[in-house]
């Protein structure tokens, strides 16, 4: 290509990638690209470079031509090792946000010192009496923290569906979805299971909820002890004293277990 022709081509590419062509010219240039693989490739690289190096832009991937690579990465993200790594990161994240939120709350609390002081005075006088009369249902009401089930980290299709349904409190849809997936022997993301268990619970299907929490515990992830906490909530709700005590003992067998301190308080209150 001589210099003039080359310049002309550069000008056209420039106009095309900067979206400065008329519709007619654009269509004509695109059909020219379709007929000329080399030109098409050049334009693609120019476009990629422009999008990649522009701080306010980004070059997005053509997923169709990277299907296998994408599947391999997704498979890796779903592996038990990376799920555990991810749970560890999430755990640190929770601790970080807890501290940040505590700091924020501290500021808010400053304005309510008088009210808080009155409340504490009242509570300190009446607490032994109040606790002494708590039923398991009361304990359930005090400690139920279903909203504390972590949001999902690496969300697969199934995970995203469960997350969305849980947000909209469509518990029936979640349990149906779970049952269909079970029939197909599909595995569920660990945190999805917690939401499935919670959904059975909210629908009053306590036995199914307990079974799902058991599956979660058996997955033996770093977050497994959460499963026992949610089982405890089910037993409290069912007013099942024996199972409540048994589950409390399991949680209290290790200080690192989820909600160890809360379990300790319940144990003391029940004495």
């Amino acid at each position: 290509m001589n210099s003039n022709k080359e310049d002309k081509m550069h000008e056209m590419i420039d106009a095309y990638i900067n979206d400065m062509m008329s519709l007619k010219d654009k269509l004509s240039f695109e059909s020219r690209m379709e007929a000329d693989e080399i030109l098409k490739e050049e334009v693609f690289i120019y476009m990629s470079l422009k999008e990649s190096f522009n701080e306010k832009d980004w070059h997005t991937l053509d997923k169709r031509s990277h299907g296998e690579a994408l599947q391999n990465i997704k498979k890796e993200l779903k592996s038990a090792t990376l799920q555990n790594v991810s749970i560890n990161v999430k755990k640190a994240e929770e601790e970080y946000y807890n501290v940040i939120n505590k700091k924020l709350n501290k500021r808010k609390k400053f304005y309510f010192v008088a009210i808080a002081a009155s409340f504490l005075l009242f509570a300190s006088i009446n607490l032994p009496y109040l606790l002494g009369n708590d039923s398991l249902e009361d304990h359930y009401n005090n400690y139920a923290d279903w909203e504390g089930i972590p949001s999902l980290i690496e969300k697969g299709d199934e995970v995203a569906i469960i997350e969305k349904l849980y947000e909209s409190k469509d518990y029936n849809a979640i349990t149906s979805h779970y049952e269909i997936m079970q029939n197909g022997s599909e595995t569920f993301h660990a945190y999805s299971l917690l939401k499935v268990g919670a959904s059975y619970f909210f629908n009053g299907n306590y036995n199914e909820a307990l079974q799902v929490f058991d599956v979660f515990i058996q997955l033996d992830t770093i977050a497994s002890s959460r499963g026992n906490w949610y089982k405890l909530l089910v037993y409290l709700k069912q007013d099942n004293k024996r199972k409540t005590q048994e589950t409390l003992n399991v949680i209290l067998s290790n200080k690192n277990n989820y909600n160890y301190k809360q379990a300790l308080k319940i144990k003391k209150d029940l004495k």
Partner: peptide
Amino acid sequence: LVNKEDSLATFTIE
């Protein structure tokens, strides 16, 4: 609906 696993995989290649 955001599929985060998919977006992280895509980002990795990008």
